[in-house]
């Protein structure tokens, strides 16, 4: 496949649970900064990563307000990756598995995230130079 590279990543871990999410974000970040087109198929708990209702919170134990706590929100990281892709001449197509979304009640995703089905993973992989599936354990 000549020309611009397209990579697909399938991810399954929910927010704040595993270093795999961090590694996945790092891989996507590298790819979008190169101007690649990147597809993400979020399955199972990973559909919660771009959930729009995530909220920063204060930390009563440490006596810090929400602003001081500066709590990282995965939805902001997803938004930053989508923006970075556009800035670098590529595109990040983030597809949330609709079945997984409905099971978890997380239909409200940030802008740039679309709903799909497991069949979309096959379609995305078919149109890509390569696909990496980062499964849960």
């Amino acid at each position: 496949m000549a020309g611009k590279k397209t990579l697909t990543f399938a991810i399954m871990d929910p927010p704040y649970e595993s270093g795999r999410s961090t590694t996945a974000f790092r891989l996507i970040d590298i790819a979008v900064k190169r101007g690649y087109d990147v597809n993400v198929f979020a399955y199972e708990g990973a559909v919660c990563l771009p959930f729009a209702k995530q909220q920063a919170h204060p930390n009563a134990v440490h006596g810090r307000e929400a602003e001081e706590e500066n709590h990282p929100l995965p939805k902001d990281w997803v938004a930053a990756l989508i923006k970075s892709a556009a800035t670098n001449g590529g595109k990040l197509d983030w597809v949330n598995c609709g079945l997984c979304v409905d099971e978890r009640g997380v239909a409200e995703a940030i802008e740039g995230v679309r709903r799909g089905t497991p069949a979309d993973l096959w379609k995305l992989a078919e149109g890509s130079d390569n696909t990496l599936v980062i499964g849960t354990r």
Binding site: L7, R26, I30, R34, Y36, N130, L132, V133, I134
Partner: peptide, 17 residues
Amino acid sequence: PLDVVVDQLADGRKAMW
């Protein structure tokens, strides 16, 4: 660096996690 993984994916190397 992790870039190596992206390099190899872009080169079409089969990748297993």
